[in-house]
Simulated scan of single mutants.
Amino acid sequence: MTTQETDGHGPEAPGGRPGTSGPGIFQHCSADQFGINSQPSFSRILGQVLQSMMRVAQEYIKFPQTTEEIQSYKEAFYNIAGMPNVLGIIDCTHAALIPPARSERAYRNRKLYQSINVQIVVGPYLNIIDVVPNYPGSCHDAFILRNTELYARFQHGVYGDSCLLGDNGYRLSRWLLTPYLNPRTREEERFNRAHKRTRAMIEYTFGLLKSRCRCLDITGGALKYKPQTVCKIIIACCMLHNIAQNNNIPAEFAQDLREEIGATVETQEVKQDSQAVRQHITAHSLQISCV
């Protein structure tokens, strides 16, 4: 998990209206709920709580480490739709913020509001096992991945034959499997169906996370904090989500969340060994029928 901080500026809601979360509505509501009499007092307490949570974040957001943990993740993912050797599912989601005026362009995403583009990897239990909240909304998902410790670990073979699943916003590699853009055979279509069913876990996890933490969705407004603080808030929300999942705490799925639509790359230049991995799985490994 990466917890470095960045400079940046926050987003506007669609239509050009600034969001109102942060030191405004969210802070006032939370202060009233917990009996804190002043906004400055709440800001000070919030900073202290976030700093304490950052010190233990890696205890709550972590990749499987032991052979037993890795195998259990692979088996759980396999049981969804027959995809072998899957250790996690990767994608990005946007958390709106109101940034410093000098950086508004850098934080404006393809949906035309300003945000942090948050890279998340989820496990088979709707748990978050890696989060990178350090890049402004204009950064492409694939660019973020290439600049992470996670990328280096997979490139160096730390996880053996394990792989991640991603959408076509990522480049196909031997450890990051994407769907066929233009499936030509029944086997390739079956691979895409299995991929889609398995990858749906991350979309559902995003929904749960943002239902629990409405400050992370544009429908809840835009966080009006410094980007460094927003990064910490995102990590804290992921920690609280995992705690809730580990303790079977139910979440009411909000129906008004903005739909997440992944970016698509129309053409890809990939190495032959990457294609061979996907083709081998397509031809030999999918044993479960995908309806």
Rank of each mutant, 00 (worst) to 15 (best):
M1W: 02
D7E: 15
G10I: 12
P11I: 13
E12R: 09
A13D: 10
G16R: 07
R17W: 15
T20V: 07
I25L: 11
H28Y: 04
H28P: 00
H28Q: 06
S30Y: 15
A31W: 15
D32V: 08
D32Q: 09
Q33E: 15
F34N: 06
G35L: 01
P40N: 10
F42Y: 12
R44D: 09
I45P: 01
R55Q: 08
P64D: 03
Q65T: 05
T67L: 12
E69I: 13
Y73K: 12
E75K: 13
A76P: 07
I80D: 04
I80P: 00
A81Q: 10
P84A: 07
P84C: 09
I90V: 15
C92G: 07
C92Q: 04
T93Y: 08
L97S: 14
A101H: 05
R102N: 06
A106T: 12
N109K: 15
R110C: 12
L112F: 13
V122Q: 02
N127I: 04
I128F: 07
V131F: 10
V132L: 09
P133Y: 08
Y135Q: 05
P136G: 03
F143S: 04
F143H: 08
E149A: 00
L150I: 01
H156S: 05
H156N: 14
V158W: 09
G160M: 08
L164G: 00
G169P: 06
Y170Q: 02
L172E: 03
S173K: 01
S173L: 03
W175I: 01
L176A: 02
T178Q: 02
Y180L: 11
L181T: 11
L181Q: 09
N182A: 14
R184G: 15
T185Y: 15
T185P: 14
E187V: 02
E187Y: 11
E188I: 08
E188F: 09
E188T: 06
E189G: 01
E189Q: 13
R190P: 00
R193K: 14
T198C: 08
Y204Q: 03
T205L: 11
T205F: 13
S211D: 10
C215Q: 11
L216D: 03
I218D: 04
G220S: 08
G221Q: 13
Y225Q: 07
K226M: 06
T229E: 14
I235Q: 07
I235N: 07
A236W: 05
N242Y: 09
A244L: 08
N246M: 03
N246S: 02
D256C: 00
D256S: 00
R258W: 12
R258V: 09
A263N: 12
T264C: 08
T264K: 02
E266H: 07
Q268F: 04
V270I: 14
K271R: 12
S274H: 10
A276S: 01
V277F: 06
H280V: 02
H280Y: 15
I281E: 06
T282C: 13
S285A: 12
L286S: 03
C290V: 14
C290F: 08
